[in-house]
Design a protein around this nucleic acid. Structure first.
Lengths: 243, 243
DNA sequence: GAGTGGTCTAGACCACCCT
DNA sequence: GGGTGGTCTAGACCACTCT
């Protein structure tokens, strides 16, 4: 078999890459919501006119990228961003015993504004684009330890600003309400001295060394969906990275 | 074909996992030195009595783990820890323009001693085990910016202490002289205030916020081969992590 | 027991590198 | 042009899940 039957809009690259793109498109279009099973390998192979092995390779790479979850004997499912899962994947603070810190978040300020120059640059936005700004304090066993300043492109999250309450795990909301799937993050980490404002918010003396984490979040299509600047007072805890 | 012909000492798991273990064993045994080509897929398949697809799966996972490098049309090679490559993979400091910082290292102190309690704990060593301690300053465009304190199990690196000069990229030496292949690292990052000693060594005022990077390095067999504690004064640079 | 993904095989052609 | 890894197919059996 030398000619294949695939959806329109597929151009270059090997066959499994096109299969992968088709599956990804259907997930982001909402055809297969998070947590549901997608068709079996054989069904997809028949429908797309390719062999099961080719479908398998596409699904395997999507599984490695944590877009899909495969369960032997059961089926292949769209990965679900439950609050617990989001914390596990994207919150890299561990205490010195090696167990992950699970923060709460305090009541939050949220507002819309025209993006500043820095915000436009970090999120790659047009002039005069609007952003949603969220500020909050995160607590650890009742004590403030992290100050978050979150910036989102308003165009991607219409109506978010009117939410009565911003949840502790935003990425869960992104996926379920806006069908925006968080794919990966890039973080720049530095050490800074606490400013007067941060010192007050975190209840530490001014000048205390804080860890500054500057994160850009990308969705499955490679779009920048969030800029987050966190300042943490890590007392008996640390940022963890595996390479 | 239901019965396979494999080397002795292979027990559980799927066939490709056993093939992978065999290839890994030959690499660490030094049969195929870094930079050389291993046999072709067809040759390995014949030799081990399995199909080419099974060999391919084994080599693909080793390639994903950066143990092998595949070059289409040419062959499959044992990954080489050249100084440039080591820097690229394991040195996570970038300047704010996004280009990687390439440090030099100053003349170095090196000595052997009985491991302290902390060293035994971090490297999982027996009582009375010996360690090699290395201290050095790293410079960036001529200015000191990072203080390194490196601890190695003496049993793994006999004779290292007598080296006339410790190279800037230790991991290259590990691979070429001791056949110890660095596989991955785990890093704990915190913000600390410069002590008097660090302030002097880095030419900053005492109390300056520094980034502390506490790294454990593992080899291909999962052994802990290094404990490294770095303190960095990041002026216009940052630690970078992708998740 | 029926159905799913996981492993393994055998063979074909393609894209690329080298000489 | 010969040899390498990369892709694709077709079919078999295994391990597991669900009901």
């Amino acid at each position: 078999m030398r000619k294949h039957r695939l959806e329109p809009g597929d151009t270059a690259g090997p066959l499994y890459a096109r299969v992968k793109a088709i599956v990804l498109a259907r997930i982001t279009a909402g055809d297969w919501p998070p947590g549901t099973a997608i068709p079996t390998e054989m069904e997809l192979a028949r429908e797309l006119g390719v062999s099961q092995g080719t479908v398998r390779k596409a699904l395997d790479t999507l599984s490695a990228e944590q877009v899909l979850v495969r369960r032997q004997g059961s089926g292949t499912y769209v990965a679900e961003h439950t609050p617990a899962h989001v914390m596990f994947r994207f919150f890299n603070i561990y205490d010195d015993a090696g167990t992950q810190v699970l923060p709460d978040s305090q009541p939050t300020r949220i507002a819309v504004a025209v993006a500043s120059a820095a915000e436009r640059r970090r999120l790659v936005l047009e002039d005069a684009a609007k952003v949603i700004r969220i500020t909050r304090i995160r607590t650890r066993s009742g004590r403030a330890f992290m100050d978050d300043r979150i910036v989102l492109p308003e165009a991607l999250f219409p109506g978010l600003v009117d939410e009565p309450e911003v949840p502790n795990t935003l990425y869960d909301l992104f996926q379920k309400r806006y069908r925006i799937h968080v794919a990966h993050t890039e973080e720049q980490v530095t050490a800074v001295a606490a400013t007067a404002r941060l010192a007050e918010r975190l209840a530490v003396p001014p000048g205390t060394p804080l860890l500054a984490i500057d994160r850009i979040t990308y969705d499955l299509n490679g779009r920048r969906i969030e800029w987050r600047l966190s300042h943490a007072h890590l007392d008996g805890a640390h940022y963890f990275a595996r390479l």
